[in-house]
Amino acid sequence: MRFSLEFKDYKMKNVKNINLRLLNTFLNEYTIDTYCSDIFKMIIIKFLNNFPSKRTEKQRTLYSDFVLVEIKSDFKNKQEINILEFQEAFNKIIKAVKKINIENKDFNLNLLMESLKVAEKNIPNSNQELEEYNKNKELVDCKNLLRLADYNIKMYKQQKREFNRPLKGIRIYSDLEDENVNLQPYIFMYENIFTNLLKRENIMLPGYNEIYIYIDKTLNDAKVNAFGYGADWSKMTYGEIDIDKYISSTESEKSEIVFSSIYQGLRMIADFDHLNSDSIERAINTVKVEGFDIDLVYIEKENKNYEVKVVYNVPRVVNQKALFKLCIKDKNSKKEGCVNIDYFDLWYVPYSISQIKIRKTEILIEGRKSLRAEISRKHDNLPDKYLFVIDKILL
């Protein structure tokens, strides 16, 4: 169970308190990987300093899986380490946790209290001990985040859930640029390629729409530094990269190194979240064989006479527009042909290509019919439809 401590001073309008910051780390050191509930994820404790007399303390559930508990306080040493206020806050939290009333929630208070009792036995007992703890805070925070990531993976693996949402996208993140390691354009290219391939595999996900992959020097670094990138509509997985090897590699070798870290993350989430590993392996193998030159199918349609596809290649420059092509196959004569449609920003393609209409002698491609689509097309000087004569393509 994760704790998050907040502070508000009604007189000074202060939202920071060094003792609560240390207590937040201390509490999570003993509780962050304690299993208390399948649903309930975090307890938010909000200390209200110089509390208005007319206002009452509240407890409420936030976003269905957090509980917020308000506690009156009268802290004096907001910016100075003070063992008495640290311990006072700890004791107030123990009392508040015992009073938590969570209706219709699977919440094991006894398990949480056992962890808090262990914390109580190890609580700092002097300003000197608390100052020493403050020196190690950053290291303890990192260990807490690593334990939280490993705990979440363990719980996902144990609790298989309904696959109720289609994949919308793959997002790849890294902060290695801070160490002068640039993973572009490979992140941009693989992000778009795997999004296309896995959406076409009709991958279904349990309760989220996007897979986030965070890449760092080691898996442990990735698990720690990815904290804060997650969102309710996504789930995080991890990849690692040898940055010394990457820096000294050729462009083609760099591409392979980034690719290996991405499929490492995809295989990891397939394992712990019970995803369709066959579909993920097909996508990985397709990229292994075809590389960046793969023709991705954006949209397709067929009737008794023709197979029609709109295809494109991901650009090798970040955010460069991609050339989209219309490809037709005559089922009877077996003739095939392709023609260029236009260049599009990959984010805004649906505004120009949303449906294909196969007519007797023509192919009509239309964009979305919305004000936002019209504004986007006007900005990029693009038409709202494209019309092609079939015989001119099947030469």
Rank of each mutant, 00 (worst) to 15 (best):
E256T: 07
I257Y: 09
I257M: 14
V258M: 13
V258P: 02
S260T: 12
S260Q: 12
S261Y: 15
I262Q: 06
I262E: 01
Y263H: 14
Y263G: 01
Y263T: 06
Q264W: 08
Q264P: 11
L266E: 11
L266V: 11
L266K: 02
L266P: 01
R267L: 15
R267Q: 13
R267D: 13
I269S: 00
I269R: 00
I269P: 00
I269T: 01
A270F: 02
D271F: 00
F272A: 06
F272T: 03
D273H: 01
D273G: 02
D273T: 01
H274E: 02
H274V: 07
L275S: 04
L275Y: 01
L275K: 13
S277D: 13
D278L: 12
S279P: 08
S279M: 08
S279E: 10
S279L: 14
I280G: 00
E281M: 10
E281P: 15
E281N: 15
A283N: 01
A283M: 08
A283V: 04
A283E: 12
I284Q: 00
N285R: 07
T286D: 12
T286S: 15
T286R: 09
T286G: 13
V287E: 08
E290G: 09
G291P: 08
G291L: 02
G291E: 06
F292E: 12
F292A: 06
D293E: 15
I294D: 04
I294T: 04
D295G: 04
D295Y: 14
D295F: 15
V297T: 15
V297Y: 11
Y298T: 08
I299F: 10
E300R: 05
E300W: 14
K301P: 07
E302P: 05
E302C: 05
N303L: 11
K304V: 10
N305W: 02
N305I: 01
Y306R: 14
V308Y: 05
V310F: 07
V310E: 00
V311Y: 12
V311I: 15
V311P: 05
N313S: 14
P315T: 05
P315R: 04
R316S: 11
V318P: 09
N319T: 09
N319W: 08
Q320K: 12
Q320E: 13
Q320N: 06
A322P: 02
A322W: 10
A322C: 08
L323G: 13
L323R: 09
L323V: 07
F324Y: 13
F324W: 04
F324K: 02
K325N: 09
L326Q: 03
C327L: 06
I328Q: 01
D330A: 06
D330H: 03
N332P: 07
N332L: 14
S333G: 05
K335N: 12
K335R: 13
E336F: 03
E336R: 03
V339Q: 15
V339Y: 04
N340P: 14
N340G: 10
D342K: 03
Y343P: 04
Y343C: 07
F344A: 02
D345M: 11
D345L: 04
